[in-house]
Design a protein around this nucleic acid. Sequence first.
DNA 1: ACCTTAGTTGACCGGTCAGTCAAAGTCAAC
DNA 2: GTTGACTTTGACTGACCGGTCAACTAAGGT
Lengths: 201, 201
Amino acid sequence: MTQAHDTKQRLLDTAQKLFYARSYEDVGVQEICREADVKKGSFYHFFPSKRDLTLDMLDASWKEFRETELPAVFASDIPPLQRLERFLDMQYRHHKAVKEQTGQVLGCPYGNLAGEMSTQDEAIRERVLSIFRDLEAPIEAVLAEAVTAGDLEKLDTRATAAAMVAYIEGLTLLAKTHNDPEVVRTLGPAMLNLVVPVSEG
Amino acid sequence: MTQAHDTKQRLLDTAQKLFYARSYEDVGVQEICREADVKKGSFYHFFPSKRDLTLDMLDASWKEFRETELPAVFASDIPPLQRLERFLDMQYRHHKAVKEQTGQVLGCPYGNLAGEMSTQDEAIRERVLSIFRDLEAPIEAVLAEAVTAGDLEKLDTRATAAAMVAYIEGLTLLAKTHNDPEVVRTLGPAMLNLVVPVSEG
DNA sequence: ACCTTAGTTGACCGGTCAGTCAAAGTCAAC
DNA sequence: GTTGACTTTGACTGACCGGTCAACTAAGGT
């Protein structure tokens, strides 16, 4: 009974790991199966296609991140702007740890997929888009709180949150290209200056 | 005599177009050859491998961009900070035009390749890295000029230029994920706030 | 005991992958 | 007008791609 659940979960976990370490197209279902110790027939018992596995993997991966990592980072135990710094620090430590384990900076699993697949698979593009939007929410909340507290001039919290997500993604891509997590540490704090004023009209 | 040069060039141009529209792994040398009307044997006469073609393509593509587009954008006919705005506007217009032609925002050809290939091919990663570094130079020059002119507080021009490249890349990836060039237009100007202060010590 | 259902297995499909090769064609220099 | 370097050609390799399928196993419900 848990065996089936386990097989499916193992496929999801393995796919997540392999896609993140390499790319969607470079990893075949054969390899996912080999690594997860699952026969190919079983793969297609659980998922109608590689693409559907990917969609499920994105949902599961983001759910996990949003429910376990994000609340801790954006918890109200420190002032709002410091939470953004904590978020940046978490990013830095993540890439540093990954580099120590694998020898490489792997970038953002969602950004990687977006860059590779947005023009190729509409469903995957939309899934990643909704993840990006999801990430904007707690950032926007923090910004609103900072404005209320008087730590920040009035600004377009929605647009600024989006700009910050863009900056994080770009920074992560740059760190991947440099293969150096320090890029995130040194350039990260500039994110706090990234302000979009309230649009007039 | 120019026939050979032409065949090679056609392969380069076709590869550039196809890689940009899709991805490195999704485009095979067979397809590049078909599209360029070149037989596969000829491909391997000119390039030892798909990877080497890609390296040559990156060199040629960046050389073209750096020598024809960049000088116009960063020309000294307007104040330094306005040149950054002109750069952003050029980006916006590019993605808008591409979307009108193909129906899709394709992102940054270098960023796409970096995201897909940095963990897979060291040579490609390094080539894109040197492109990113190359792009930082004119931005850094503009920043230095703006500081001299008193338009900007003193800042770490090198780090700020890198942060701006990161932001552009992130913005472009976000626009690709949204499949909407307007992301670049609305969020672009925030780049000008992206300042890294002079590091103390 | 029997049937259903979920899960598993491995052989199999047509097609494509990057890359190889030997032979033929082309053309300029001598 | 022949040589030799450059270029072109298309058939070929072995591996792999995503996906299919029918047969099989195991467990539960009745």
